[in-house]
């Protein structure tokens, strides 16, 4: 199972990456589990579980922690938006 990950704005800078393709372990089935999986990398990645404000989008729609992640999904993490 492979998903596409995207990181934006201050999170992208902190991680030093704008995105990646990732093979998903079988036990990572939703956004909350994906955050934990990425946070386990340590350092700046810990923001994914520690920062309450970081938002998640699944296939380009904002979602909560319970949203299910499946093969081929596009998941993005980013800080609160500041457009307009």
């Amino acid at each position: 199972m492979t998903i596409k990950l995207l990181y934006f704005a201050s999170l992208r800078e902190a991680l030093g990456a704008s995105g990646e393709e990732m093979a998903l372990p079988a036990d990572v089935a939703d956004i909350a589990a994906l955050r934990k999986h990425l946070a386990a990398r340590g350092d700046a990645w810990r923001a994914l579980t520690q920062s309450q404000s970081l938002r998640a989008a699944l296939n380009q729609r904002m979602v909560g922690p319970q949203a299910a992640v499946v093969d081929g999904d596009e998941v993005a993490f980013f800080p609160p938006v500041t457009g307009g």
């Binding site: 934006f8 704005a9 201050s10 404000s53 989008a57 904002m62 993005a76 980013f78 800080p79 609160p80 938006v81 500041t82 457009g83 307009g84």
Partner: peptide
């Protein structure tokens, strides 16, 4: 748009400090 459209602003000041991301 202010709370739902995925845009982020980064501001440059007088050049003495690095550019900073705008807080929501």
């Amino acid at each position: 748009l202010k709370t739902r459209a995925p845009f982020w602003k980064k501001e440059e000041g007088n050049g003495a400090e690095p550019a900073r991301w705008v807080d929501a």
